[in-house]
């Protein structure tokens, strides 16, 4: 958008000239689509980075978790940090565990349920964060061409009205208007195509991460439930 004021060079029919000649509706559509494209790419870049980070974080956490380190110790190191992904689930579960045992849990069944709930909550929060803004990509992907087409239709309409006014059927009269109108569709496609591709890729990635975290949550839940059983058994014995 910042570059638009530069658009004064070029020939009679360069893209810039076409943009400036367009009517305000078409201009609005083109500017909107350009903004959508910018935002789409911002999301794509952001998400790609975020997913990459998340994946490496998951790998690191799994490594640490299965390294045989004591869970208490791990919790202590993670508790005061800002946590993401699996560590967030782990921290949520451990916090619930701790709270229950500090106050003296009555029924192991209730404790198990609470821990599961806490983990589910953490998981859904994480997923929500991961998948945020992907909806915008989907919207741009599906609506972008239509918006561009709308600009084109309006542009061609006005250009035909102008032709009717000029009472000339020469192609030289018709061509510029149609070219400028088609530019709107071009920009729409330009925004929509990367958005669709990126949406498919990112949502697949998000699904994979989500499955990995769910798997971890289930595993951790199983571990905790074993521990609860053991503790209950110790108390009973």
């Amino acid at each position: 958008m910042e570059t638009l004021p530069l658009a004064t060079t070029g020939g009679e029919l360069s893209i810039w000239e076409l943009f400036w000649q367009a009517g305000w509706v078409v201009k609005l559509v083109m500017i909107g689509l350009l903004g959508a494209s910018i935002w789409t790419w911002a999301i794509i870049i952001d998400k790609t980075i975020a997913y990459g980070r998340m994946r490496s974080a998951l790998n690191r956490f799994e490594q640490v978790f299965w390294s045989g380190q004591s869970l208490e110790e791990l919790y202590r190191t993670l508790a005061d940090r800002k946590t993401t992904g699996m560590s967030a689930i782990f921290v949520a579960a451990m916090r619930e565990w701790k709270k229950s045992f500090e106050k003296g849990a009555r029924t192991p069944m209730g404790l198990q349920m609470r821990i599961d709930k806490a983990m589910d909550l953490a998981l859904s929060r994480e997923m929500e964060r991961l998948e945020s803004r992907l909806g915008f990509l989907a919207s741009v992907g599906s609506a972008g061409p239509f918006i561009g087409l709308f600009g084109t239709v309006i542009g061609i309409m006005t250009s035909f009205q102008a032709i009717a006014g000029s009472k000339s059927t020469s192609l030289a009269v018709v061509a510029p208007g149609i070219a400028e109108a088609l530019l709107a569709t071009a920009i729409g496609l330009l925004a929509a195509i990367p958005a669709v591709l990126a949406y498919n890729k990112l949502s697949a990635d998000a699904g994979k991460i989500s499955a990995r975290m769910e798997g971890f949550a289930d595993e951790f839940s199983a571990i905790l439930s074993r521990q609860i059983d053991e503790k209950v058994g110790q108390k009973a014995a």
Partner: peptide, 20 residues
């Protein structure tokens, strides 16, 4: 998000300048 947005802006600006 800022990183993404700024990168996107830079890319678009570069593309438009290239087109210019």
């Amino acid at each position: 998000m800022k990183a993404g947005l700024s990168t996107s802006l830079v890319l678009h600006a570069a593309l438009l300048a290239f087109g210019l």
